[in-house]
Each structure stands twice: as structure tokens, then as C-alpha cells.
């Protein structure tokens, strides 16, 4: 396996490649959740949205032969699930965390049920852009085969950062998330703002799911997500609700997830499962470092049910 010509360089290279490949679903889900949470609502159901997105993208791509139609279908599925979450949460005395957990189970369950016939067939996959054409080293070329969705996600982070500050839409969203009283006093419907924010969040999470089934790993099976959606929701908290930090955090998690396979490829096989657990260890470590019982989280939208 190990290529003698670049030796141990395989590891950082594979981690880089992993950061790019594995981070994409994290990136989309966390940016989506960032939008939803900045509006003052938490949607834990994005794990279910991710899996539903993956399933519907694979199905539509298989049926129509166009992976891009699959991506669109995944987004629409996600937006519909977001609308369902927001709709239920609009009712009085409904807790968004509980609804989120219910929708997480509903989304994954529904995807497994509807996706049963999709395990066998092969659907057309999303194309990748070869940024490693300049290199002769196969590992470099493999690491730099970048999917368009990743590039869109990378562009989306600064766009969101800008939009939160300078657009009417962004200001209203933040107002709803920071002080629903203030938003209401200005005559805006907080529920409507949150409905839209949750739908956009679901749309992005659905697209994140399409990446899973249509690019990497690039097939549909029930173990596809393995909790990436819920990790991405937690990631928003580490990223302090800042879309740019969401980007860096996603890359870090992607890199950590690639650590196990990368070490295996250079022959470090002992503790393989331990290294595979790197993202979860990273989660715990960041939690312990950044959280304190004596402080509240800085940057947390004031209307969020976990901070109120």
C-alpha cells in the first residue's frame, strides 16, 4: 500500500484529502444549522435530514441519470423536513430539541424504509475537478480531486458571514435569534423568520446528504452517515455560530476522520479503531476546553432554548 517515494508524507496528504472530502457534509449541515440557530431555533433533526437527503439524491440520480437533479431533490427534501420541524415548533409549548430528536429518528427511519431498493443499483455520481493535474504523485492527485459541492460550501461560508451583517435578511434573522421581543416590536413575524431559516437550514443539510451518496463514499447504505449530522450540529456550537469558523471546524473534523485510514495506509495498523474515533475524541476535547460551568457561551443567540 505505502508508496515508498513519498513515505510518511502520505499521512498529512491523506489527512488533507480527507479534510476536503469528508468535511463537505459537515460543512453543509453546520452552515445550515448555523442559519437556523441564528434565528433562535435549534434543529437536531438534521441527522435525519442528512440521511433523507442522501437517499433521495441517490434515488433521483438513479432514476433520472442526472446527479445534479439528485442534489436538487436532496435540497428540496431537506427544506420540506425543515418546514415540518418549524411547523411543529410554531405550535405553543413545543420544545424544539424534542421535536428535533423525533425528526432525527423519523428521517433516518423513513430513509432506510424508502431506500431499501436503492442498495443494489449504482447511480451516476457527481463529477470531481482535478486540481492535482500538475503532480505526478498519485496520492497528491487523489487528495486534490475536489468536488464542486465542496467549493460551493467554501464560498458559502464567507457569503453567509457577509449576509448576516449587511443584508436585510441577515439583520432580521439575527434580531429574531437575539430578541424575539424586539423583532415583534418592529412588526415582524418571528415564526415566519424561523420557518424560513429552518427550511434553508434543511435545504443545505439535504445537499450535504447528497454528497455522501453521490460522491464520497458514493453509494447508498444504512451506515452512510454514522452520526455526521449530529456532529455537525455540535460543531456549530464550537464555531460560536460564526459561518467562517464553521468552515475551519468542518475541515478539522474532516481531517480527523481521515486520520485512521491514512495511518493504516502507511502501515500503522495498531489502534486503527482508536484513530477512527479521532473526530469523537476531538469533539470531547473541544467541549472540555471551550465549556465552563462558570461562563455562558459567548456568541450564542440569546433566544436559543439551550441558552435561555
Amino acid at each position: 500500500m505505502a508508496d515508498g517515494s513519498i513515505g510518511l508524507w502520505t499521512v498529512p496528504l491523506a489527512v488533507l484529502g480527507g479534510a476536503i472530502r469528508v468535511s463537505t457534509p459537515f460543512l453543509f449541515v453546520s452552515l445550515g444549522e448555523c442559519i437556523t440557530e441564528r434565528s433562535g431555533r435549534i434543529n437536531l433533526g438534521l441527522e435525519g435530514t442528512l440521511v433523507m437527503g442522501a437517499m433521495s439524491a441517490y434515488g433521483i440520480s438513479y432514476l433520472t441519470g442526472s446527479p445534479w437533479l439528485g442534489v436538487l431533490a436532496a435540497g428540496i427534501t431537506g427544506a420540506l423536513l425543515g418546514a415540518l420541524h418549524a411547523g411543529i415548533c410554531s405550535l405553543p409549548r413545543v420544545n424544539d430539541v424534542a421535536v428535533g430528536i423525533a425528526l432525527m429518528l423519523f428521517g433516518t427511519g423513513l430513509a432506510f424504509y424508502l431506500g431499501k431498493p436503492l442498495i443494489e443499483p449504482t447511480a451516476p455520481r457527481l463529477p470531481a475537478i482535478d486540481f492535482g493535474w500538475w503532480s505526478d504523485i498519485p496520492q497528491v492527485r487523489a487528495a486534490l480531486r475536489v468536488n464542486v459541492l465542496f467549493l460551493i460550501g467554501v464560498a458559502l461560508a464567507p457569503i453567509l458571514y457577509w449576509a448576516f451583517r449587511t443584508t436585510r435578511w441577515g439583520l432580521l434573522l439575527r434580531t429574531a435569534g437575539e430578541s424575539s421581543d424586539a423583532a415583534r416590536a418592529m412588526g415582524h413575524s418571528v415564526l415566519l423568520i424561523r420557518l424560513r431559516a429552518t427550511m434553508v437550514g434543511g435545504f443545505l443539510a439535504g445537499i450535504g446528504g447528497s454528497f455522501l451518496s453521490l460522491f464520497y463514499p458514493g453509494s447508498w447504505n444504512e451506515g452512510l452517515s454514522s452520526g455526521q449530522g449530529i456532529t455537525a450540529v455540535a460543531l456549530v456550537i464550537f464555531a460560536r455560530w460564526d459561518p467562517l469558523l464553521c468552515l475551519w471546524a468542518s475541515l478539522a473534523f474532516g481531517g480527523a476522520a481521515a486520520l485512521g485510514p491514512a495511518l493504516q495506509s502507511v502501515g500503522v495498523t495498531s489502534g486503527y479503531h482508536l484513530f477512527n474515533a479521532a473526530p469523537y475524541i476531538l469533539t470531547l476535547a473541544i467541549m472540555i476546553i471551550t465549556c465552563s460551568p462558570k461562563r455562558t457561551l459567548t456568541g450564542a443567540p440569546a433566544e436559543l432554548s439551550i441558552t435561555r
Binding site: S179, A182, A185
Partner: peptide, 11 residues
């Protein structure tokens, strides 16, 4: 002008 502030503190 209300007794409780209607400004958004984080902005």
C-alpha cells in the same frame, strides 16, 4: 420607549 430595552444587545 419601553421600560425594558427593545434594542438587540448582540448588535
Amino acid at each position: 420607549v419601553y421600560q425594558h430595552f427593545t434594542l438587540v444587545p448582540a448588535m
